[in-house]
């Protein structure tokens, strides 16, 4: 009985939470310009989205490209800087370590709007004109701390003697770095990269303040401007639906795999 009520509560909450997305998904299969007005089943919005046969499709496509490009570049650079920094931080002691850890925590604690405004003021102060470069720099700023925090635990868990042993056996420092240190750090780097990538994809506020006035749009800023112009472009409905279903499938697969792996480990 208790279990029944508990399940009811959980599913009620889920139904309410998912109602808006389901609503968008349902109405992505009708042609009506106005949301909530069902004019018969149609996949026209999907075809429009993929063939680019819609108003302002060029800017939507370039917004999607920008989003992916910025996320890829920012996440890659963050992973590189963050990993090198983590190795350095791991070998530091005392005040210096405290100071750098403190600074590293700030972008994670700061609300997006503060990060955005403060970087905006930096670029204004340094007279740097804003565009792609400033957006990417800004994204690196808030992504790198997550990489550092993903890689650091791998270093603390590592047995330091392994690296020393490689050197004693005649490996050059660079060879030992590549063959010993890197494989140990790799899982941390991968999860750091994924975190950084999704943080960058998700960002709105920081991009909004650092993109300048050259008309650079990411998906978030595109949607923001589009919605403020009065209502969502109908073609965004299938796009939101596709993104949603894609992420849902990915997460369920990852989690089921994890659960299965855990079961196997338990069986042993």
């Amino acid at each position: 009985m208790k279990r029944f009520f508990a399940q009811c509560y959980i599913w009620l909450l889920l139904v309410v939470l998912y109602a808006p997305i389901v609503f968008i998904a349902v109405f992505s299969f009708t042609e009506s310009k106005v949301l909530g007005n069902w004019t018969g089943f149609s996949t026209k919005l999907y075809t429009n989205l993929f063939t680019g046969d819609m108003q302002g499709s060029g800017s939507l496509m370039s917004a999607i490209q920008n989003t992916l490009l910025i996320a890829l570049v920012a996440a890659s650079i963050s992973t590189l800087i963050g990993t090198i920094a983590a190795i350095g931080i791991h070998n530091m002691k005392g005040r210096g370590k405290q100071a750098i850890t403190f600074l590293n925590n700030i972008p994670m604690l700061n609300p997006d709007i503060i990060t955005g405004v403060s970087l905006f003021l930096l670029f204004v102060f340094l007279h740097i004109s804003q565009g792609y470069t400033t957006v990417i720099l800004a994204h690196i700023t808030f992504c790198t701390p997550y990489v550092v925090l993903s890689v650091l635990p791998k270093l603390t868990q590592m047995n330091p003697n392994i690296y020393e042993a490689a050197l004693d056996l005649g490996a050059t420092p660079f060879y030992a770095l590549r063959k010993v240190l890197l494989p140990i750090l790799k899982p941390g780097m991968v999860s750091g990269f994924i975190l950084a990538f999704t943080m960058s994809l998700d960002d709105f506020a920081v991009t909004f303040f650092t993109r300048g006035t050259i008309g650079l749009d990411t998906l978030s800023t595109y949607i923001y401007t589009d919605a403020r112009k009065g209502g969502l472009t109908p073609e965004l409905r299938p796009m939101i639906t596709i993104l949603f279903v894609g992420i849902l499938a990915l997460l369920i697969i990852i989690n089921l795999r994890k659960a299965r792996a855990a079961e196997k480990a338990n069986a042993k």
Binding site: A85, G88, N91, G96, I140
Partner: peptide, 18 residues
């Protein structure tokens, strides 16, 4: 290896503290 953190330290000062 502790010097490896130096570039990031400079980066943090420039893009977080400043």
């Amino acid at each position: 290896r502790s010097t490896w953190a130096l570039p990031y330290a400079i980066f943090l000062v420039l893009f977080v503290a400043l």
